Amino acid sequence: QVGFAGSRVRPADADPAAYTAEAQVAAGAADALVGPEELRDTLGRWLRLLTRPSTAPVPPPPPLGATDLPATGWEAVGRARSPRRPRAAAYLDACLTDRVTVSGDRCGGTDPEGMLCGFGEQGGRTVAYAAQTGTATRPAGYRTAARLVRLADRLGIPVLTLVDTPGAANDAEAERQGAGAAIADLFGAVAAARTPVTTLVVGEGGSGGALALAAPGNTWATPDSYFSVIAPELAAAILKRPPEEAESTADRLRVRPQDLAELGVIRGVVDTPPA
């Protein structure tokens, strides 16, 4: 059992399943379940990864998808939304080895489908990562990423963030879970980090849900991505334009990677083809 309240002091009608290790992992209060036979190796991996500080920033990974630049803003949006485009897991597999996972926001939630967090090895040093997976990120995902960034900052470990979301989850449940506060907290964690943070936009970079992961002064983009304060369709709706004007709105927003570099929003476009 794992819990704040011991078996002799908890309410008599309390669900005993809530006080198990499995329940604590599901609620985001613990990172993982580890069998007794795996404890020694697991502890060794964590100690090795967390005791290797580095002051050098993580270089942005090379693109795994398209290497030519989109001709229009709408083409950039289409590429970023393509189901054939490489996602975060592919980038993490390509640039990091021996990964271990950080899971849970320590506030009762997890977002394993929307945010991948943990530590891995790159060229003999440790790198922390927080990577969106192309879905609408939940509040627990942002809080987990903020926890990861602060832990890496305390340990002097550089951070790599991968941006890929159409935007933060905006349903009623996300509001009840404190979406705005969670996004703001991640903004603060990234901005306040003393350890180097590198960001690569690998797909959709939609709204504040994407901006929260972007490193000030060290954000890059792949050729099959876009980065914008709002999606073109939503921008058209706010401007009271008909839906068919979303395509031209994308051009006006200047969301292409090369536009972002020209505007100074990002440092540049990574264009080295995969080996």
Results as ranks from 00 to 15, higher is better:
residue 1 Q to H: 12
residue 4 F to R: 14
residue 6 G to L: 08
residue 6 G to C: 02
residue 10 R to K: 11
residue 17 A to E: 11
residue 20 T to G: 02
residue 24 Q to K: 12
residue 24 Q to S: 14
residue 29 A to P: 01
residue 32 A to F: 06
residue 42 T to P: 09
residue 43 L to M: 09
residue 45 R to C: 06
residue 49 L to T: 03
residue 49 L to E: 02
residue 49 L to G: 10
residue 52 R to T: 15
residue 61 P to H: 08
residue 73 G to W: 04
residue 76 A to P: 12
residue 83 P to T: 00
residue 101 T to I: 13
residue 111 D to W: 11
residue 119 F to Y: 15
residue 119 F to P: 12
residue 121 E to M: 11
residue 123 G to E: 15
residue 131 A to N: 11
residue 134 G to E: 08
residue 137 T to S: 14
residue 139 P to Y: 10
residue 139 P to H: 14
residue 145 A to Y: 12
residue 151 L to T: 11
residue 152 A to E: 00
residue 154 R to S: 04
residue 155 L to F: 04
residue 163 V to Q: 06
residue 164 D to S: 03
residue 165 T to L: 09
residue 170 N to L: 12
residue 178 G to A: 03
residue 180 G to P: 07
residue 185 D to H: 10
residue 189 A to E: 12
residue 200 L to Q: 05
residue 202 V to F: 03
residue 204 E to G: 13
residue 212 A to C: 15
residue 221 A to H: 07
residue 222 T to W: 14
residue 224 D to Y: 03
residue 225 S to R: 07
residue 227 F to S: 01
residue 228 S to V: 00
residue 241 R to Q: 15
residue 248 S to I: 08
residue 251 D to Y: 01
residue 255 V to A: 00
residue 255 V to K: 01
residue 257 P to K: 03
residue 258 Q to M: 08
residue 258 Q to H: 10
residue 260 L to V: 00
residue 261 A to G: 01
residue 267 R to W: 05
residue 270 V to I: 07
residue 270 V to H: 03
residue 272 T to P: 02
residue 272 T to V: 05
